[in-house]
Computed example of a mutant assay.
Amino acid sequence: MKLRISERRKKENNREYAYRVLRDNIMTMQLLPGETLNEAELAEIFHVSRTPVHEAVIMLKEEMLVEVYPQSGSKVSYININTLKEGYFMRSVLEPEILATLAGSLSQDYVEKIKENLDLQKKVLEEKNEDSIDAFFKLDNKFHQLIYQAGNKSNVWRAVRRVSSHYDRVRYLDAIMSKTDLEAIQKEHEKIFHQLLIGYTEDFDLKKFYDRHLGIYRKNFQNILEHYPEYFGI
């Protein structure tokens, strides 16, 4: 089992650390769909007991990222197309509504936080190293999380994050295989930020824009299915 191990964050307990690292590895396809998760081996890798690893696996099961089989262990879940569609649907319905509510009334605190995030996105893409895609998608998720938080919808974001787990894995696959134009996505983030700052203009079709922004993976989805059929389940 090959994992990308990041440093433990300040005040992060064993369960939180194991959960975060495992989730990051699943979302970036370092741990592939169908791959077995050996809790004893993971405990050794993380230098912790098996209990926090088991708790982390259960948390991932709740996000539909891991399948747990009694008496036979756990595996990374296959990407389910219906779950993928649900994640896309949930975000495409909720986020435009939150943005419409926030447009023109974003607090200064969140203006600064979102601007900082956008600057980091641009910096990551300019560096163009082997970690750029991973780093960009983390900042992408943080960008959208900040919008939910600014709209006082943190609990909604947690629900969206759970349901969107399969959708996010396909977006990552699309970026790797189809060479998604991440700079174009960053520019769309800047346009969203602009609308949040000044309010929506009459010529801005929010739902159409957001459908394109969230649905960019659909252009190459058939190719993804054909190249990686082993990653998908019914």
Rank of each mutant, 00 (worst) to 15 (best):
D119C: 08
S105T: 13
E63G: 12
E12N: 14
V93S: 10
K11D: 15
D119Y: 10
Y17D: 04
T201Y: 00
K128R: 15
R50K: 12
N152K: 13
S154E: 15
T28M: 12
F204G: 00
R8V: 10
S74P: 01
G87A: 14
E35D: 03
Y19S: 01
R9A: 10
E12G: 14
K61Q: 15
I26V: 06
S132F: 11
E116D: 14
T36I: 11
V156I: 07
V170D: 03
P96S: 00
N129F: 08
N155P: 02
H166G: 08
N129P: 05
S6W: 04
I224N: 13
T180R: 14
L37C: 09
Y17V: 09
E35T: 09
K123H: 08
K11E: 15
N155L: 13
E202T: 12
G233F: 14
Y200L: 12
L99E: 11
L65V: 01
Q121L: 10
E86Y: 04
R218E: 06
N220M: 03
H189Y: 04
E62L: 13
E190Q: 14
G233T: 13
N38M: 00
N25Y: 10
L118F: 05
Q186P: 08
Y88D: 02
M1N: 07
L32F: 06
I224S: 10
K122L: 09
K138M: 10
K61D: 05
M29R: 09
Q222H: 00
V48K: 01
P229D: 10
H54R: 15
R20K: 10
K85R: 15
G73H: 00
Y231V: 08
R218V: 07
L37V: 07
Y200K: 00
K122P: 03
Y148R: 00
E95H: 05
R171D: 03
Y228Q: 09
L106R: 00
M1G: 02
N82G: 11
L106A: 04
I198W: 02
E39L: 08
P96G: 05
F209E: 03
L106E: 01
I234C: 02
R162K: 14
N14V: 08
K85C: 12
M90I: 04
T180I: 09
Q149V: 13
